[in-house]
Design a binder for these strands. Structure first.
Lengths: 184, 184
DNA sequence: TTCAAAATAGACAAGTCTGTCTACCAACTT
DNA sequence: AAGTTGGTAGACAGACTTGTCTATTTTGAA
């Protein structure tokens, strides 16, 4: 059974459970059960539950931006790309059962782990930077400067998904998109 | 020691720990230790840990709006009150060590408890309604109608605090306020 | 002063948690 | 063909979890 994707199965299962149920209520026992692997295999690939958590964050971060790149690629123009960011988050909100942002969720649980907080911040800063670059490409002018406009969009996104997570719906991010359409 | 505030001490301690550390990592043992009360006293006032959680949400909700009322009372004019909402959240963000919204935090942990979700939603809806009433009192007109403007402010608030929680800072809600000042 | 309510300390049950360890087996490489 | 690697199954330690229960003491009011 060499190379049979044991490590992937562990990480996939853990990722699903960490997001769905929460990190602390998900036990090693449940992970090995649902991933259908041996206990020693898990500890062979991930020395501790914390390592598994960090691997979850890293892989989620990576696939998040990979997927976003593919999502934005066919879309023309910075304004349309900015609006598509909302569609992307709305799509994910639906796909993952309306529980909000993965990174927001984990921050609420892993309260004081610096390794976790650093990854969360890096993830959000990368998104913010991407938004700012797109805003800079628009020839937009208003009472807000480019950075403020980028922050507005960023906060509308984050606020929409956060509220969507609390309401278990996609209403808030959809409203956020409508506002962005009016503002841009 | 009758009426010595045992119940209050339990709830205060639990509230602090639930927010600070998280609900699931806070054990009954730690609560009774730090509240300096007997185990049976806790179970006398709160039949289960879940009851304690709901009491925490209810009391937090109540004091949140009481405090907000007092905070807004001396402030004149709907526009100024709306901006003061940001100051209120920023003040709380600082006071509670930058961990973001209490209700957002608990939603990330108590994933599927309907009693919890209902309280969170009620809390946020009340805030949203308050914002809309204040917006209605302004004679503001723009590309956004009143409801959209209220939603914008609401999402800026929630986004600012959510990001502030993830960054462990008050930068984001402060930026959110500046944007609100420009928009209003 | 009597008496019930409410607090205390602490043992206990039954279960869960993470992480380690042994023993064994299958597969791939040299 | 021998040996290394990565997988499996499952026992185990030690700590922690929530909730119950007994027995005792303090408190405030009648």
């Amino acid at each position: 059974m060499r190379e049979s994707g044991v490590k992937e199965r562990i990480l996939d299962t853990a990722s699903r459970l960490f997001y769905d149920q929460g990190y602390h209520v998900t036990g090693i026992n449940q992970i090995i059960e649902e991933a259908d692997i041996a206990r020693a295999s898990l500890y062979n690939h991930f020395p501790s539950k914390t390592d598994l958590l960090l691997a979850y964050l890293d892989s989620t971060h990576a696939s998040w931006f990979e997927e976003l790149d593919a999502f934005l690629k066919p879309i023309e123009g910075p304004r349309e790309k900015l609006l598509a960011l909302f569609d992307f988050r709305i799509m994910r909100q639906k796909r993952y059962n309306y529980k909000g942002c993965h990174f927001n969720k984990i921050t609420a649980e892993a309260s004081d782990d610096q390794a976790v907080l650093a990854r969360v911040k890096a993830h959000k800063e990368r998104l913010r930077k991407l938004i700012l670059e797109l805003v800079d490409q628009t020839m937009y002018r208003s009472i807000l400067n480019n950075e403020q406009l980028a922050d507005t969009l960023f906060l509308l996104l984050e606020g929409g998904i956060a509220v969507g997570g609390m309401y278990r719906s996609s209403e808030a991010p959809e409203k956020a998109k409508q506002i962005a359409e009016a503002v841009l």
